[in-house]
Simulated scan of single mutants.
Amino acid sequence: MPPVFAHGRLRLYLLKLLDEAPRHGYEVIRLLEERFQGLYAPSAGTVYPRLAKLEAEGLVTHATEGGRKVYSITEAGRAELADRGGELADLELEIRDSVTELAAEIRSEVRGAAGDLRREMRAAASASATQVTEDESWKVAKEELRKARHEWKEQARRAKDESRRAREEAQQARRQAKEAQDRAREEVQRIAGQLQEQFAKSGGVLGSLAGAWLGGGTQTMPAEPRTADADAAAHTAAAHTAAADADRDPDWAADLTPTGDAGRDLDRLLDRFRDEVRDAARDRGVTAAQVAEARRHLAAARGRLETAFGSGR
Rank of each mutant, 00 (worst) to 15 (best):
S98K: 05
S98V: 04
V99Y: 04
V99M: 14
V99L: 15
V99R: 11
V99H: 05
V99F: 07
V99D: 06
T100I: 06
E101N: 10
E101L: 13
L102R: 11
L102F: 07
A103L: 02
A103E: 02
A103F: 04
A103D: 05
A103R: 01
A103I: 01
A103Q: 01
A104F: 09
A104S: 12
A104W: 04
A104E: 15
A104K: 14
E105P: 00
E105Q: 14
I106Q: 06
I106Y: 12
I106R: 10
R107W: 00
S108L: 11
S108H: 14
E109Q: 14
E109S: 13
E109D: 13
E109K: 09
E109Y: 08
V110Y: 01
V110P: 02
V110I: 09
R111N: 12
G112I: 01
G112Y: 07
G112H: 10
A113F: 03
A114E: 12
A114D: 08
A114V: 08
A114T: 09
G115K: 09
G115H: 11
D116H: 13
D116A: 15
L117P: 06
L117A: 10
L117C: 06
L117N: 02
R118K: 11
R119E: 14
R119M: 09
E120G: 09
M121I: 09
R122L: 15
R122Y: 13
R122T: 06
A123E: 08
A123P: 00
A123N: 07
A123D: 08
A124I: 06
A124P: 00
A124W: 04
A124T: 07
A125H: 05
A125I: 06
A125Y: 04
A127E: 03
A127C: 00
A127D: 10
A127Q: 01
A127M: 03
S128V: 02
S128K: 04
S128W: 04
A129M: 10
A129R: 12
T130V: 07
T130M: 07
Q131C: 06
V132P: 00
V132L: 11
T133N: 07
E134G: 00
E134R: 15
E134A: 14
E136K: 04
E136N: 02
E136Y: 02
E136L: 15
S137E: 08
S137Y: 03
S137W: 06
S137A: 15
S137P: 00
W138Q: 02
W138K: 01
W138P: 01
W138L: 08
K139R: 15
K139N: 08
K139D: 11
V140R: 14
V140G: 05
